[in-house]
Amino acid sequence: MSEWEPKIVSFLCNWCSYGAADLAGVSRMEYPPHIRVVRIPCTGRMSPKFALAALREGADAVWVSG
């Protein structure tokens, strides 16, 4: 645990990427446990303010996918 563990806030579109993340689970694909998903109804909902807010709160990266 001494290694740097990044925190990534992920804004995922309910219809595609959120579902894809579900499917990644269904398919038991492994990936590092550093993302925290915020489900949004569409990436159209995404505002630059959210990205900035996440970075301000200490996120190391913001990932928007949709």
């Binding site: 645990m1 563990e5 993340a21 579900d22 499917l23 990644a24 689970g25 269904v26 038991r28 694909m29 492994e30 990936y31 590092p32 446990p33 550093h34 998903v37």
Partner: peptide, 14 residues
């Protein structure tokens, strides 16, 4: 589950 236990099975603490 889908976003956690199923994809991080080798990393129970995290």
């Amino acid at each position: 589950r889908n976003h956690n236990s199923w994809v991080h099975k080798n990393n129970p603490d995290l």
